[in-house]
Write a protein that binds this DNA or RNA. Sequence first.
DNA 1: AGCATATGTTGACGCTGTCAAGATATCAAA
DNA 2: TTTGATATCTTGACAGCGTCAACATATGCT
Lengths: 212, 212
Amino acid sequence: MSYQTEHKSKQNKPSYHHGDLRSTLLKAANILLKETGIEGLSLRKLADKVGVSRTAPYHHFKDKNQLLCAIAEQGFVRWQQDAEFIFNQVELPPKEKYRQFFHGYISYAADNPELYDLMFGRTIWKQNSATNELRDVAFPSFNHQVDMTKKWQEQGLMPSGEDTLRLSQVTWGTMHGIARLLIDGIYADRSHIDEMCDCAVNLFTQQIVQSK
Amino acid sequence: MSYQTEHKSKQNKPSYHHGDLRSTLLKAANILLKETGIEGLSLRKLADKVGVSRTAPYHHFKDKNQLLCAIAEQGFVRWQQDAEFIFNQVELPPKEKYRQFFHGYISYAADNPELYDLMFGRTIWKQNSATNELRDVAFPSFNHQVDMTKKWQEQGLMPSGEDTLRLSQVTWGTMHGIARLLIDGIYADRSHIDEMCDCAVNLFTQQIVQSK
DNA sequence: AGCATATGTTGACGCTGTCAAGATATCAAA
DNA sequence: TTTGATATCTTGACAGCGTCAACATATGCT
């Protein structure tokens, strides 16, 4: 089974031009990414799956890097949606909300390991090769988390003595670290991960003191 | 300037056999790794630097993977030495010792980013391709950290309510996460990193309550 | 209708890891 | 000392990769 559309024109005749190659490539790339990982994702295999020649993708992505950035971009958008869904659960007590956020982050990474590697891995960031489009999605995502941390401090959930930015960085760093240990195959066991998350949440949050 | 030894025999005549190729390769690989990163380290370039043919390394390492594992192995040994030096500073109060351990871990990663990537990155672990020799060095390194965590709990430095193993995993996860954010180029600024470390140490440690 | 532009194709280049086959040195046993 | 096994090193070859140049074809505007 192949991902290739037969890209026919409206009259159902096979057409020289694909018509929707860019989004078709992105879709196929996501599948190929899941199947074979970042290392296994090659432009040539991708073009083959889609049914175009090796160099056709170059008319839609300047680079392999630009393709990767576009995939990562989608990853950030989807995670942002997940996160906002959690943040918007009004009825939840703060600690439980933070707990869900923490577990949600790790779950997103665990469910999309290769995508997570693309979003936060050295492939893109180490070489400073992130496109502007990607930066415009990635940075606000972290800023949002800083805002939430500030709120949690004000609510007394997190220690107000620590600098908000540093605290955000550390809590994010912890989530990132656990996520990486998981997706890089250093901790295979998912149940351990859940307990680790709970342990971390305990360490970062404190009992909320009720003023009488 | 090249790394190639002229590998002459004792009589100083150039010899067909190198005589010490394995360790020469490892030494050159470490340099090449620092210079060009994991992505830039190719067996062919390596052989070229050392002055042998492309396939000569295959008589000393079955695989590129086996070479990478051997490099990572050395990395673990060196880190283990650093860590034990910190642990053995008898006069230090517990919190300061933990602080030094935390900063030491991050410094090691920052000073040897490509080596750290090899030691804890997906290149080796994700594919389950670690050699037995590597495992025999890597696993005790973490176990040692668990022992130290247990001690810190008993000393009242860290919360004794948490399971020791989970606590070790979370604190390690945090260090690993911060290290990765640093070496993957997501946080470029080293000074931020230092403040993040202090913040994390504060979160993980508590005032030691003196019994009177 | 004609021309610019977008999109797709084939050919080629240098890089990579790795296998096979042959050359040469070393070392142990006869 | 000679012989034969074994370790080590060499060249040749292959497939896969990203990407550039040159060419082909379709689309869309004037």
